[in-house]
């Protein structure tokens, strides 16, 4: 009987001593945290994509509260979330137009020429090491999906003919795919952009024609035919001024190779409103 009592006593005393130390430590080493950080963190997507320029959502939430960082840098948040965050910290922020990634290459398995068969590791960087990849076009998509694996939101998937497809609704424009691609093929464009040359090859027409049937040959037809003068040639590729473009698609109709493409989805009403507000 007495041994039970000693055992209980010893355990109780040990527990008391340990909890005493823990209690003291919790008081002495108390770290003050702003409750707003936690609140903002709950609203952020939590994907830690790094699109805001911070290491993760918690870093960004801390920066918003402590360093007066603007709340509109989160690419994964909708306008409503950003407004809520503004309400918490008591500032106002302009909401910039949403950007989405576009794959600037249309040279899929059926349209681009290949130099050899690649059976190595399924990674674009690995394929690049082997004579610059198996596509004859050294600027085109390698189709091994490094960008797909880099996407934290699952917005990218491999298309039928070996070119990744972006799901505009899921894409937040964090830019992880841009960083993952060894050839800078995905790029971020405003969601309201209407046309885009789906080619990344700046070389002369003849060379492009030899390696791909849908490459931009730099013929300047789109520049000449654009009624709004919204297209300029920069480094052998057309660049579209989104503010001037009215979406008449004259350039798409005139493009002899079909590199200039209509961006498939219609611009959503809410995005238009956001663009105007910004």
């Amino acid at each position: 009987m007495s041994s039970i009592i000693t055992a209980c006593l010893i355990m109780a005393i040990l527990g008391l001593i340990l909890s005493f130390f823990l209690g003291i430590a919790a008081k002495v080493f108390y770290v003050e945290t702003d409750p707003r950080i936690e609140q903002i963190l709950d609203m952020l997507p939590g994907a830690n994509c790094g699109g805001c320029g911070y290491a993760g959502c918690s870093d960004y939430a801390e920066a918003i509260v402590k360093k007066n960082e603007k709340p509109n840098k989160c690419v994964g948040c909708g306008a409503d979330v950003i407004e809520k965050i503004c309400a918490i910290i008591g500032t106002k922020a302009t909401i910039e137009e949403r950007k989405v990634a576009r794959i600037r290459c249309a040279g899929d398995n059926t349209k681009a020429k290949f130099e050899f068969k690649y059976i190595g590791a399924k990674d674009c960087h690995a394929a690049m090491l082997l004579n610059g990849g198996n596509k004859a076009c050294k600027y085109g998509c390698l189709g091994l999906g490094s960008c797909i694996r880099a996407c934290p939101f699952g917005a990218l998937s491999m298309g039928e003919n070996g070119i990744p497809v972006v799901d505009e609704d899921l894409c937040t424009g964090c830019g992880n795919c841009v960083k993952a691609c060894p050839r800078d093929i995905p790029q971020l464009y405003p969601v309201s952009q209407k046309v885009l040359p789906l080619c990344n090859n700046p070389l002369k027409g003849k060379v492009v024609k030899q390696v791909c049937s849908v490459g931009c040959i730099g013929c300047n037809l789109c520049v000449k035919k654009c009624p709004e003068k919204a297209i300029k040639m920069v480094n052998g590729l057309p660049v579209i001024d989104n503010n001037k473009c009215t979406g008449c698609f004259e350039c798409v109709k005139r493009c002899p190779t079909g590199a200039m493409s209509k961006l498939i989805k219609e611009v959503k009403e809410e995005d238009k409103v956001e663009a105007n507000a910004a």
Binding site: G15, Y30, V31
Partner: peptide, 17 residues
């Protein structure tokens, strides 16, 4: 008991220090 409290203690101290 000792190990669990120790880990907890180390965590509290590290967070501050």
């Amino acid at each position: 008991l000792v190990i669990a409290s120790l880990v907890q203690l180390v965590e509290i101290v590290l967070q501050k220090v």
